[in-house]
């Protein structure tokens, strides 16, 4: 490394990870503002969604591909954990790993042929997978419990049981931090530069010697596995899973969170997920109008901030500074 001094290197690392430090501080501070288990529940759900969205954002924002099946990958992870632990007595960690590996294999098989094509074929393929998964989960009730869902026990590891809202909050927050940190490193690595190049112009990237198909497959599998891991943890936290949590609409919701917060911005994905998880709960007091207001907020954001909330806000700040 040819950096001239430790101070400069530290400054650069510090700057690159300023967002992570801020995120860690906020995550540590939020519990102070959470008055009860219900608030914890929303927070934990928001953190889990945020983790899935950070992974999805790598695919959408950096590889330029859309997945309409991420809720299905989440669901496969959740059901793998649920079924293996309740029906076959597996340890939760083992079930989690098997679920993640299984989803990794499945997404790899799907992506391999599809991502050799240019354009949005991945969206169609994942749409299909999502619907197939949803039908199987709904109808094979001897295994999945059908539309009534599946009850699942606690997450235990080496004799310790993870219980309580604080415990789960720490796990969800830790997972999000690790994911954000890993994504930041990935984006700043040669792989990340290759991804951004292929998002900018696939032909140019190929001319520059980048194996675009390989990178796209890699990112897709990575984000699918991440969704599966979150699914596995979620099912133990919630104690249950139903197919509605894994359906097409949920996949759309995840994509919306990424776009809402701001594509190609890791923190944008986090913000999008947090806001779109918390907002419906804030709006319930408007009763019959809540869906309408939520829709208006989303349409308004997309019209006035087409690049997403965080990216646009950061852009305004940037302009303000320059002038």
């Amino acid at each position: 490394m040819s950096c001239s001094g430790r101070g400069q290197a530290a400054a650069i690392v510090g700057r690159r990870h300023a967002g992570e430090v801020a995120l860690a501080l906020v995550l540590a501070a939020v519990p102070l503002a959470l008055p009860n288990a219900y608030a914890y529940d929303i927070a934990i759900n928001a953190l889990f969604s945020a983790t899935v969205c950070v992974g999805l954002n790598l695919l959408i924002g950096y590889a330029g591909q859309i997945s309409l099946g991420h809720a299905a990958f989440f669901g496969l992870g959740a059901y793998a954990s649920g079924i293996l632990t309740t029906r076959y007595g597996w340890p939760p960690l083992g079930a989690l790993v098997v679920g993640a590996v299984g989803v990794g294999g499945l997404s790899w098989l799907v992506a391999l042929p599809v991502l050799r094509l240019k354009g949005h074929f991945l969206a169609m393929a994942t749409l299909g997978i999502g619907i197939i998964v949803s039908i199987v989960l709904n109808t094979e009730s001897w295994l999945t419990g059908g539309s009534d869902g599946l009850m699942v026990g606690d997450f235990t590891l080496f004799g310790h049981t993870l219980t309580g809202d604080r415990g789960w909050y720490c796990v969800a927050a830790g997972l999000l931090l690790v994911t954000v940190w890993g994504s930041r490193n990935l984006i700043s690595s040669p792989v990340g530069r290759a991804l951004r190049a292929l998002h900018g112009c696939e032909v140019a990237a190929e001319v520059a010697g980048i194996n675009t198909a390989r990178y796209k497959v890699m990112v897709f599998v990575l984000s699918a596995v991440l969704a599966a891991i979150v699914g596995s943890l979620f099912v133990h936290y919630a104690g249950m899973i139903t197919p509605s949590k894994t359906g097409f609409m949920r996949s759309i919701e995840l994509v919306t969170m990424v776009v809402f917060g701001g594509m190609a911005s890791i923190h944008g994905a986090v913000i999008g997920a947090v806001i779109l998880t918390v907002l419906p709960h804030l709006l319930t007091q408007f009763e019959d109008y809540e869906t309408m207001i939520l829709g208006a907020i989303m349409v308004g954001t997309m019209i006035f901030m087409p690049r997403g909330l965080l990216v646009t806000l950061a852009g305004w700040r940037w302009r303000g500074r320059a002038s």
Binding site: M1, S2, C3, A9, I12, V13, R15, R16, H17, A18, G19, V21, A22, L23, L25, V26, A29, V30, A33, L34, P35, N36, Y38, A39, I42, A43, A46, R184, I187, S188, R196, A264, S265, I266, H267, G268, V270, I271, V274, I275, V278, H281, L282, Q285, L309, L310, L313, A314, R317, W318
Partner: peptide, 30 residues
């Protein structure tokens, strides 16, 4: 060479602020 990240790091404070708002909002609704 270590290249500066493309997504500006100064989104950090904005981001922190928004997360805090979300956190407080959860508290208020409760």
């Amino acid at each position: 060479k270590v290249r500066p990240p493309v997504v500006p790091a100064f989104t950090g404070p904005v981001f922190a602020f928004m997360l805090s708002v979300a956190g407080i909002a959860v508290g208020v609704v409760a």
